[in-house]
């Protein structure tokens, strides 16, 4: 990986007194600037503990933590945390403070002047899709769960930290709202390019949110840390395979676009034989193409351009090729890694 990692955990362990084994054992992990790294694993594997080691809500028993190359293992934890956004599942808005006061928490601690704080609050509320004129002076109890977590995210972004730690931020929100929050958050991240460590137990959320996913087992042992595509195409061991579950190869199809394929030509005579043929656009994923094929019980799907004219055809063989290519690429990648070490 090129350049200096934004966050580096170097042989970090956490041993609770009286516990049998370490909660986190000798964890070494690099997180690159601007990426979303998702820590995912079964309950009790220590993923939240790992997250909380980064802002030292939990003090490591041994090992070092670096941010931007600086060792922060021994700096003042309160000062450290003001540089790191922190979002938790329970949100934890302060009910006796208005939305504006909540969002201003960190800037106020950093003693920004009032005008700057006020501008910043409006900016952040706009950013998370809440109209400041409506929501500034409301109290948390007047918000829905989804709105409250938007405020939670805005508050974490208060002093524009370059790092965000998110502990199952959308875990307590109903599926439909969660979906839209995830999408909005990804759109936001396009703009903000924060370095984000995101904890979830939901592999589908991990696949959706992560630039990289680290699959953690007992004691936060990293079984596999890689892009979602590679993990889906090539789970390195049984633990990962069973954790990501069935149908994983198919999930991988969601990462490739129809437009990137070498499409078969559209042939009026062969393809236009009156059978109900599904059409999709070039920006659809291969997963959507597959869905369309299944829906129409046809081994192919016509790709149409913006004006609705057929531009080519996706065939079943495209999909199996794509799966095989992804698998081969991942295997080659791991072979190279194995050879290098």
């Amino acid at each position: 990986m090129a350049g200096e990692p934004k966050i580096r955990l170097d042989h970090v362990s956490k041993i609770y007194q009286g516990a049998e084994g370490p909660a986190v054992a000798e964890l070494t992990l690099d997180i690159d600037p601007g990426e979303i790294l998702v820590l995912v694993g079964p309950s009790g594997c220590g993923k939240s503990t790992t997250l909380r080691l980064i802002n030292r809500m939990i003090e490591p028993t041994s090992g070092r933590i670096y941010l931007d190359g600086d060792d922060v293992t021994d700096v003042n934890p309160d000062q450290l945390r003001r540089r790191i956004g922190y979002v938790i599942q329970q949100i934890g808005l302060f009910p006796h403070q208005t939305i504006a006061e909540n969002v201003a928490t960190v800037p106020k601690m950093l003693r920004w002047d009032r005008k700057r704080i006020s501008t910043r609050v409006d900016e952040l509320l706009e950013l998370v899709g809440l109209d400041p004129r409506v929501y500034r002076d409301r109290y948390p109890k007047e918000l829905s769960g989804g709105q409250a977590q938007r405020v939670g995210v805005a508050r974490a972004l208060g002093a524009d930290p370059s790092i965000m730690l998110m502990d199952e931020p959308f875990g307590a929100i109903d599926p439909i709202t969660r979906e839209s929050l995830q999408n909005e958050f990804l759109r936001l991240q396009e703009e903000l390019r924060k370095t984000i460590v995101f904890v979830t137990h939901d592999i589908d959320e991990a696949i959706k949110m992560g630039d990289r996913i680290a699959i953690l087992g007992e004691q936060s042992v990293v079984h596999q840390a890689d892009t979602p595509e590679r993990i889906l195409a090539y789970p390195v061991d049984d633990f990962v395979r069973s954790f990501i579950g069935a149908g994983t190869a198919m999930k991988g199809l969601a990462f490739e676009r129809v437009g990137d394929l070498d499409l078969a030509p559209f042939d009026e005579g062969r393809n236009g034989d009156g059978k109900p043929v599904g059409t999709i656009t070039a920006d659809a994923t291969l997963f959507e193409a597959l869905e369309e094929m299944l829906r129409t019980a046809d081994g192919k799907t016509v790709v149409v351009d913006e004006s609705g004219r057929p531009a080519g055809v996706v065939e079943l063989s495209h999909l199996s090729d794509a799966l095989r290519t992804a698998q081969d690429e991942a295997r080659r990648h791991y072979d190279e890694l194995g050879a290098a070490s």
Partner: peptide, 21 residues
């Protein structure tokens, strides 16, 4: 609620600040 303290501490409030605020 503990989650408020967790959020407050996580944002860098000192123990005294979480108590007073």
């Amino acid at each position: 609620d503990r989650s408020m303290l967790e959020a407050g501490r996580g944002m860098g409030m000192t123990r005294m600040q979480t108590l007073l605020r």
